[in-house]
Design a protein around this nucleic acid. Structure first.
Length: 294
DNA sequence: GAGAGTCAGCGGGCTACACT
DNA sequence: AGTGTAGCCCGCTGACTCTC
């Protein structure tokens, strides 16, 4: 135990603010590819690869390359190694994970059938972080995994709001406008009816006094997007619903004007322009310990 | 001087395909 | 069936510049 703690102390002073942000993301969101990390946090892929190799040598990160059927190779996929998990847990005041738990977690990440879905969600947020990196007025304040939402809405000792099953929650600002939204990442594998049914959870939340933040469907094609809007025409909505299709992005970030707000005749909206039920202070979300940065 | 970052070239691991 | 080659998709390395 003493040795492990020493190692944690030893590596901490070698970390930059960017490293802390990366470790925090991996603590919350399991896995990122070298491309995603480079795009979100580094000026070049080359330099990112160097730094990631260093963090791996410090035993903060683990990496793996999934088998690729079409030939060639996947990029390295990075996850938190045991030491990395200890470092982040320590800064957040969480219970330090046991080594066996860290190993089990890693194996589960690497072999998960939901790996593509997870990487798809993470791609959305790393695209936003990349936008933030080169646009001084933009800021990704918070990126929460879906699992943290229920803790946020139902803290111990309070009246429960109910459950929502979002893939993630984001708090995003640009040009002084702040929005909070739930993300539903769609790979086109679920029936449209299943997507529409997910909105019932958000309606329940609003009915019990929860906030009516927009729900974003991040869809894989414009055809599916059009079909979903037709379905929504016959659905009673209590939260704003917006959609974007990845096949019309043409390299644009999800921060840009790509969002089709259901029931609105207005042109496509930027992420920061989505309707909010009231003023939002990003600091309101700090109490649940989002960042790993000490 | 140290660290951050860029550029170009090289090499590894894989599939597909043609040839023997 | 075995072998060689091309192409794809990557990461790694050395040499260099820039900034603090």
């Amino acid at each position: 135990m003493r040795t492990t703690t020493d190692h944690v102390l030893r590596v901490q002073h070698q970390l930059t603010e960017r490293d802390w942000r990366l470790l925090g993301w991996l603590y919350d969101h399991s896995v990122l590819t070298s491309f995603q990390i480079a795009h979100a946090l580094f000026p070049s892929l080359n330099y990112a690869q160097r730094r990631l190799t260093q963090l791996t040598e410090l035993s903060l990160l683990e990496r793996f390359r999934p088998f690729r059927l079409q030939g060639g190779s996947h990029p390295y996929h990075y996850a938190l190694a045991h030491t990395g998990a200890l470092v982040v847990a320590a800064t957040r005041g969480d219970e330090p994970p046991r080594r066996t738990a860290s190993t089990t977690r890693l194996h589960r990440i690497a072999t998960s059938r939901n790996l593509d879905h997870r990487l798809g969600i993470n791609q959305f947020f790393t695209d936003l972080a990349a936008h933030e990196r080169i646009h001084p007025t933009a800021r990704l304040h918070h990126w929460w995994p879906g699992t943290r939402l229920n803790r946020f809405f139902n803290p111990p000792g309070t009246t429960a709001y109910g459950m929502v099953q979002a893939d993630a929650l984001g708090v995003w600002s640009e040009h002084g406008q702040t929005t909070v939204w739930y993300l539903e990442h769609d790979q086109g594998t679920e029936a449209l009816g299943v997507l529409v049914e997910k909105l019932a959870g958000y309606s329940n939340l609003v009915r019990r006094g929860g906030p009516a933040w927009p729900v974003l469907f991040w869809l894989h094609s414009t055809t599916r997007e059009a079909n979903l809007h037709r379905r929504l025409d016959n659905t009673r909505l209590t939260v704003p619903v917006a959609t974007a299709a990845r096949d019309r992005l043409d390299g644009h970030s999800p921060a840009k004007a790509v969002w089709h707000l259901h029931g609105s005749a207005s042109p496509l909206l930027r992420l920061a322009e989505l309707p909010m039920p009231g003023e939002v202070d990003p600091a309101d979300f700090d109490q649940t310990r989002q960042r790993a940065t000490p």
